[in-house]
């Protein structure tokens, strides 16, 4: 069963993202939203973890409004930004949605 993991907590506040990346399989997807997009900040440890996951062909997405709200620069090429319609599409594309609430 393919899973879309949705993480919204800041990677600097707890280790949800780290745990999620550890569980992420090649056929799964990871959607960053809310404060979790801070993980994309260049030069940080969470970003290095994401770069590593992307290099291991994991699919990583981010909610575009949250990227815009934080004016994040230096976004990686592997990142796929989605709007809410895209979020819904991803929920259909993967067989289940696991929110790391």
């Amino acid at each position: 069963m393919t899973t879309l993991h949705v993480v919204s907590h800041s990677p600097f506040a707890d280790d949800r993202l780290q745990s999620c990346i550890r569980l992420l399989r090649p056929e799964d997807g990871l959607l960053l939203c809310g404060n979790a997009v801070e993980a994309l900040r260049d030069g940080t440890k969470p970003r290095a973890l994401l770069d590593e996951a992307a290099a291991a062909s994991r699919s990583i997405y981010a909610l575009d409004e949250d990227l815009a709200a934080r004016a994040l620069a230096g976004l990686p090429e592997w990142l796929r930004a989605v709007d809410y319609a895209g979020f819904v599409e991803l929920s259909c594309q993967y067989q289940r949605v696991n929110g790391w609430t």
Partner: peptide
């Protein structure tokens, strides 16, 4: 939905729900 009315997740849930209906779901 699990968070308080003013929580970011509550707003995101609403926008997701709106997008789901708009997408014909």
């Amino acid at each position: 939905v699990f968070g308080a009315p003013h929580a970011p997740g509550t707003r995101r849930a609403l926008r997701f729900a709106q997008a789901a209906l708009a997408g014909g779901h």
